[in-house]
Amino acid sequence: MLTALSIRDVVLIEALDLEFGPGLGVLTGETGAGKSILLDSLGLALGARADSGLV
């Protein structure tokens, strides 16, 4: 189970530390808020290939 995610120097995010509690986790926000950046960062943590513009 994912309990925390730390993101550094990805696109517009200099540093971000997220902690997830038990139960369902949901990401919501306006267009351009960074939801896709968070999902791309999670993909990188799981071994996905990085696009040169992402890092």
Rank of each mutant, 00 (worst) to 15 (best):
T28S: 12
V10G: 00
G29P: 14
A50C: 12
E30Q: 04
R49G: 10
V55K: 03
G43D: 03
A4M: 14
L46R: 15
A4L: 06
G21V: 06
A48T: 10
D40W: 00
L2E: 15
K35M: 07
S36T: 09
I37R: 02
G32E: 09
L16E: 04
L39K: 07
F20V: 11
L16R: 02
G21C: 11
T3Q: 14
E30H: 04
L5P: 12
A45G: 15
A15I: 02
G21M: 11
G43T: 00
D40R: 08
G53T: 02
K35T: 08
L54I: 00
S41Y: 10
I7F: 00
L42H: 04
L5I: 12
A33E: 13
L24Y: 10
G43C: 03
L38I: 08
L42D: 04
D40L: 00
E30A: 13
I7G: 01
S41P: 02
A33L: 07
G53Y: 11
D9R: 06
A50V: 08
L46C: 14
G47N: 02
L24N: 13
L5Y: 10
S41A: 15
T31E: 13
L46W: 14
L44Y: 07
D9S: 13
G53E: 05
L39R: 02
G43R: 05
G23C: 05
G47P: 13
A15D: 15
L39F: 11
F20Q: 13
S52D: 01
I13K: 06
A33K: 01
L27M: 12
V11I: 04
R8W: 03
G34M: 09
A48L: 07
G21T: 11
D17T: 13
V10M: 05
L46I: 08
F20S: 11
G23K: 04
A4R: 15
L12W: 14
E19N: 11
L5S: 09
L16G: 05
D17L: 13
L39P: 02
L12C: 09
A50M: 12
I7K: 03
V11S: 00
G34N: 05
S41L: 03
E30G: 00
V10K: 01
A48E: 09
L16S: 12
D40A: 02
T3V: 12
A33W: 04
L42G: 01
F20Y: 14
A45N: 12
G32W: 11
V26G: 08
G32N: 06
G32K: 04
A33S: 15
G21E: 14
I37T: 08
L5E: 08
V26W: 10
G21H: 14
G43I: 00
G34A: 03
I13Y: 04
L42A: 05
A45H: 11
L24W: 14
V11G: 00
L12G: 07
S36I: 01
A50F: 08
E14C: 09
V26N: 09
A33T: 11
R8E: 10
L12P: 03
A33I: 04
S41G: 13
D9L: 02
G53I: 01
E30Y: 02
G53Q: 12
L42F: 14
V26Y: 05
D40Y: 01
G29M: 08
L44M: 14
I13F: 14
S52L: 05
